[in-house]
Amino acid sequence: MQPFTTLTGIAASLPEQNIDTDKIIPARFLKTIKRTGLGKNLFDTLRYDESGAERPDFVLNQPAFRHAEILLAGENFGCGSSREHAPWALLDFGIRCIIAPSFADIFHGNCFKNGILPIVLPADICAALQDDATLGGNARLSIDLSRQVIIRPNGEEIAFEVDEFRKHCLLNGLDDIGQTMQLIPAIDHYEARLAASHDWMPGVMVG
């Protein structure tokens, strides 16, 4: 996983509430067996019309926001399915940070596993950042994860909260599995206990 330390980039605003995972990446694009290549279908139905042509009014189709790395989203962003294709599509497009008043749980967790930083901030602060974003390439937001601040174009700093463990993983580009593998003795021990106390629990039998 690519570490996330600091990021300075263009922010695009997509303030609609309840953007679900089917909107982020529709089901018909989930047939891939790869993690990459989904960026072209990110927000597919919002971004393209029935003929496949770009909708000029959609934010990521506008020249100033084509290279956005930060997404300013609305409430309950990422609700719906557990598909990790949603963060993969965002990452493949180039989004590394999403700022919203709230996220759906599974999507929120999936972001961290892919080097994307989701930041929760009160709605009024999100609205202020959306105003900044209207300046497009003329104004960039900076995010400093180790100090847990967003730096606005006017230099003002906005603090944000982040889970300690997830921050550590993001800063160092660590994937969880490698770390959990170090706990194998504890897992072995748990399994031995389980086998004794739950000896009635059979394995999966589909012979």
């Binding site: 557990s82 967790g109 892919n114 994937d175 969880d176 599995i177 593998m181 897992i187």
Partner: peptide, 11 residues
């Protein structure tokens, strides 16, 4: 998510 699927498969 799929990263967690991998995590469960492995651990």
């Amino acid at each position: 998510g799929t990263s967690e699927v991998e995590h469960v498969l492995a651990t």
